[in-house]
Amino acid sequence: MKFMRLNRSLLLMTAAVLTFSACKRSHDDPGTEYAPNMYDPVGYEPYKQIDGFKNPYNKYGTNLWEPVRGTVSRPNYHTKFSDSTGRSTEDLMVYNIHPDSITISERVLKNPIPLNDQVLTDGKEYYARYCQHCHGETGKGDGLVAKQYKGVPVYSGLPPMNDGHIFHVITHGKGRMWPHGSQMTPEERWKIVHYVQKLQNEG
């Protein structure tokens, strides 16, 4: 009987010690982790970095590795055009300038597609498909949608717009104009650039 009482007392004392030692003033301390693998995965997850842990297999100490060179997919159109002399030119037309950096686009981007009648014909077709409903057939801002939308500019009333400016605005939008980069290829956008400049010069 005494032995059972002693065991019960020891059990109660042990439980009390564990209870009081586990409780701390700070609620930020989770206490001792008896099974840390339940919280932190054994495998190295590339997008999770445990504080204080350095991956021994990466020279930077991180779980996230840099991709192998040449394995990241990028827009690569490999478009070819003939310039005024008949020579074939190639331009990748990779466009990754930040949406807020329109001034960079104005300084850096040049239309890689040589201007000719076919390009203007294509540009007119794409313009009618994507732009005319707001900007109007002749760029006067009088399209059917513009009558309800309000505030669509008249091309002839704007200062001359260079290649990069128009391409950037088509791609990322500006003001109330929504971005159209996901709706048409860079080649289509560049052809529209030529046609918009034609409308502006004629206005």
Score class of each variant (00 low, 15 high):
H135R: 05
N116T: 00
P114C: 09
Y47C: 05
G70I: 07
I50F: 12
R74G: 04
N111L: 00
H98A: 14
V42C: 04
G61E: 04
I113T: 01
R87V: 09
P46Y: 15
K110R: 04
D83K: 06
R107G: 09
N55P: 06
V42D: 06
I102T: 14
C131N: 00
G70C: 06
K110S: 02
H133Y: 05
Y44S: 14
N55H: 04
V94T: 13
G86E: 05
S84I: 13
K48R: 15
G52H: 08
D117M: 06
T71Y: 02
N116H: 10
V108N: 07
N63K: 09
T89K: 08
E125T: 13
N55E: 08
R69E: 12
F81D: 12
V119L: 01
S105D: 04
R74Q: 14
K59V: 11
N76S: 02
G136C: 01
E66C: 09
D122L: 01
I50D: 11
T79F: 13
D122T: 01
R129T: 12
T85L: 11
Y44K: 11
G139K: 00
G136S: 02
E90W: 10
G43T: 15
S73H: 10
A128H: 04
Y47G: 08
L109P: 03
I102D: 05
P56L: 03
G123D: 03
I113H: 07
K54E: 12
T89L: 11
L92M: 15
V94A: 15
L64C: 09
I102L: 06
G52D: 03
E137D: 09
L120D: 03
